[in-house]
Nucleic acid binder design. Structure first.
Length: 423
RNA sequence: GGAGAAAUGGCAGAGUGGUCGAAUGCGGCAGUCUUGAAAACUGUUGAGGGUCACACCUCCGGGGGUUCGAAUCCCUCUUUCUCCGCCA
């Protein structure tokens, strides 16, 4: 969430930038500032009452020691009023603070100046495109047909075992999937990211820390018996490593990577665009995360974009990079680049990575800080990105690499798969 | 799942109702000494709110209660450890 002092000092900027998201925020910002002022006023009143009652208590203690019981008892009566009003004030303080926080939760991150105006994905800005779109033979098939033809992914079997959106990978399909995971992790660790294996279920505090809770619980599977959530992305357990952490400045930057399955309810999204691997309830993803010094976070974002680019270049997939417009930008992000691979057989772009800078928005919730060179505590910046999401990369590979003789395996993956063609 | 014990500052560990935000040791930081380093010595060193800065307020696993006053007493939840059971 946003920091109140930041809002106070940059009111016009905040309102102007939130307008990129097509939000008219003037009223809510004014409300936040008013509530904060109220909160501080109540706090001051409460503090002085507590100070008084503390000093009376000390006095009573002294009187008992010197045996002046009568005087002590007289003082006791004085505290009754103080107690009542401090109780009242602290209730009021809690109410005000809660109202303020509820309001802050509803305000998304302030977009970076680079974020283009716009309403929907149609207004995203293509900033880079690379790779040649292959000329496929006449009976080229979409991946779900190829999956069936070569018996590498079984969607019906997943239906039987679990339900729609839980495909079963078989034989060379399973092996290709594992190869991709290993390849991505190797690329990421070679780039300096430390590999982690993270829990696939998280508690409420973690869901809250990265902003999935309280509003987006509909997106996550919930295990009510234990009050745990299945992770929708490794971002959740990965970023929560740093909840309530104060780092030393020299520990920055931190980069971690991890492979996890991801579980998403995707309630309400059905139709032609969710066929095959395009949208699943369970899928695999390798994630990269960084904790950065505020002055260096945008350099780091560019760095992450470059890193993901090299992977797609090596896989020789045609892709493009989009800068998300205000209307399409995620709630917690200040600037996001989406990577899309072109699926030739489906004749459409598939999102395979999303790389974002959250600035202090998550860190503020997480209380992730570092001690700067002056010894003062400052919120760090968090960033993350997929490198990469498996299913659509897999779809892109099997569609773009299909030949009349079978599906070829990209050169860089052959050491990982142990075979060069699926036929 | 059953029985018992525990949870205090970065770590270890004292503190059982009244200058305790908390002894002591280690670690960290600064300095003295040294050509430099180590050792030794001296000082400093939790977090949040608040203030121009002080003052002041809150926090001893979380929540609630008793009391004029709680790290210390009571209730409850969570976690950890030991023993038993189960088990990849």
């Amino acid at each position: 969430m946003l920091q109140v002092p930041f809002i106070r000092e940059n009111k016009t900027l905040v309102i102007a930038r939130l307008a990129k998201r097509n939000i008219e925020a003037t009223q809510i910002i004014e409300e936040v500032l008013a509530l904060d002022e109220e909160r501080r006023g109540i706090q001051t009143q409460l503090d002085s009452i507590l100070a008084e009652s503390n000093s009376i208590s000390k006095e009573i203690g002294m009187l008992f020691k010197t045996g002046e019981v009568e005087k002590a008892n007289a003082l006791k009566e004085k505290t009754t009023n103080l107690k009542n009003s401090s109780k009242e004030l602290s209730d009021k303080l809690n109410d005000t603070a809660n109202t303020l926080n509820q309001l802050l939760y509803t305000i998304p991150n302030v977009p970076n100046e680079l974020v283009p105006n716009g309403n929907s994905e149609d207004d995203n800005e293509t900033v880079f495109q690379e790779g040649t779109i292959p000329q496929l033979h006449n009976d080229a098939l979409p991946h779900w047909e190829l999956a069936k033809k070569y018996d590498i992914i079984d969607f019906e079997l997943g239906n039987k075992i679990t339900g729609a959106g839980f495909p079963v990978y078989k034989g060379k399909g399973a092996r290709l999937q594992r190869a991709l995971i290993a390849y991505f992790l190797d690329k990421n660790t070679a780039a300096g990211y430390t590999e982690y294996q993270l829990p696939h279920l998280v508690n409420e505090a973690s869901g809250f820390g990265t902003g999935q809770l309280p509003d987006k619980e509909g997106q996550m599977y919930h295990v009510s018996e234990d009050n745990l959530y299945l992770i929708p992305t490794a971002e959740v357990p990965g970023t929560n490593i740093f909840r309530d952490v104060i780092l030393n400045e020299n520990e920055l930057p931190i980069g971690i990577t991890g492979y996890t399955p991801c579980f998403r309810r995707e309630a309400g999204s059905y139709g032609a665009h969710v066929r095959g691997l395009n949208r699943l309830h369970q899928f695999d993803k390798v994630e990269i995360l960084r904790v950065e010094h505020p002055e260096k976070s945008y350099e780091a974002l560019d760095n992450m974009v470059e890193h993901v680019k090299t992977i797609l270049q090596e896989l020789q997939l045609p892709y493009r990079i989009l800068r998300l417009c205000g209307g399409d930008l995620g709630f917690t992000s200040a600037l996001t680049y989406d990577f899309e691979v072109f699926s030739t057989a489906q004749d459409r772009w598939l999102e395979i990575s999303s790389v974002s800078n959250f600035e202090t928005y998550q860190a503020n919730r997480l209380k992730l800080r570092f001690k700067n060179s002056e010894g003062k505590k400052e919120l760090a910046h968090t960033l993350n990105g997929s490198s990469l999401a498996l299913p659509r990369v897999l779809a892109g590979i099997i569609e773009n690499y299909q030949t009349p003789d079978g599906i070829k395996i990209p050169e860089v993956l052959i050491p990982y798969t142990g075979f060069s063609i699926i036929n």
